[in-house]
Computed example of a mutant assay.
Amino acid sequence: MALVLDLSGRVVLVTGGSKGIGLGITQAFLDAGATVVTCARSESPTVDGAEHRVCDVRDPDAVTSMVEEIVATHGRLDVLVNNAGGAPATDAATASPRFHDKIVGLNLLSPLAVSQTANAVMQRQESGGSIVNISSISAHRASPTVAAYGAAKAGLDSLTRSLAMEPKVRVNAVDVGLCRTENTDDHYGSDDRVAAIERTIPLGRMAQPVEVGRVAVFLASDLASYVSGARVGCDGGGEPPVFLHV
């Protein structure tokens, strides 16, 4: 039997799916033949072949309305990819409580709320469904300047394992390492600095967003039909010990 990643006929929601890593995820699902809906807080350039909804995933009522609209349009929801997230760099010691609340809300509480809403739909479907949480290597190492983000992603990995205990819907996480997006230069600095960072990665480069997407597609596909509660690293081999560079 040939191993094929064919998601034709499946309906996929990718939060934050119109830029950055989310764009790569959206493209990977489109390449696999899925019907893809993206969402963001505002109108975004529509990815060719995908649909877009305006929705603030921090608002449970807005999430419910969006999912109901998707089901009304397509009759089902097979896959949810919780990708929306992120955090600006700041000193945790001086950041305001409101700042920390917003970061934890976006990166942990919002995926929980969207997962609850999607799960309610998937439970009614004979085929169930699949949820893929886009997490980060920041969940499992010190994350200076993005402490609240790292803590939220650690919570997301824990949430993944807990949600996977419930029946019928598979739930997995992808712990993403350094990835090249349209914001790479703004985040990491000059080309020379980016190149220096890439030399520390065992595979010698940062990921491309679509590579993260392919991992998500695998986890959502029938090839991963007995994979649930897993945390899959997509980090090019991880971060080598400091003693190798001193």
Rank of each mutant, 00 (worst) to 15 (best):
G128V: 07
G22S: 15
A207T: 01
G86L: 01
I131S: 04
Y226Q: 14
G189V: 05
L219N: 06
A220K: 03
P88R: 02
G33E: 12
P60F: 10
Y149G: 02
R231C: 09
A28E: 05
V246A: 11
E43Q: 12
V232L: 10
A89N: 06
T15Y: 04
G229Y: 02
V79H: 07
G204R: 10
S8M: 13
G155P: 09
A148L: 00
L108P: 13
S110A: 12
A89S: 13
A2P: 12
V79L: 07
H100F: 13
R170H: 08
A95E: 10
S158P: 13
D192H: 10
P167N: 15
V227F: 10
F99A: 03
V63I: 11
V215L: 08
L7I: 08
P144D: 02
R98W: 06
M1C: 15
R141P: 00
T26G: 07
R214L: 09
M165G: 11
L77A: 02
G236A: 06
E51I: 13
V146N: 00
V242E: 14
Y188F: 11
A224S: 12
V11C: 02
M1H: 12
V217T: 07
N119V: 15
T200L: 15
P88E: 04
G129Q: 08
N133Y: 01
K168V: 12
G237W: 03
E182N: 03
S130P: 00
V63T: 08
L178S: 12
V121I: 11
E198Y: 01
G33S: 12
G189M: 03
V47N: 03
P88F: 05
S18I: 11
R10D: 09
S158V: 09
G229C: 15
L23G: 09
F99W: 12
R180P: 05
P97H: 01
G86R: 00
V54P: 01
R124Y: 02
P60A: 11
S158N: 01
I197K: 00
V114G: 06
D59F: 03
S42N: 06
G33Q: 06
R161N: 09
L108C: 06
S221E: 07
V114K: 07
G237E: 00
S8G: 09
V11H: 00
R41C: 04
Y149Q: 01
T145R: 00
G128A: 10
S143D: 01
T26F: 01
V63F: 05
R161D: 11
S115M: 02
F99E: 01
V242L: 13
A120Y: 01
N133D: 11
V47H: 02
M122P: 10
H74V: 09
C39D: 10
A224G: 13
I131N: 06
R10W: 11
R180C: 12
L77W: 07
A224E: 05
V212Q: 03
V227S: 05
V242Y: 13
A154G: 02
K153G: 00
V57G: 05
A207P: 04
A28S: 08
G105F: 07
V36I: 04
A164D: 00
T46S: 14
I25H: 04
H187C: 12
N119L: 15
N183R: 13
Q208Y: 03
S96F: 04
M165L: 14
A148S: 00
V79Y: 04
V36C: 04
I103G: 07
A148W: 00
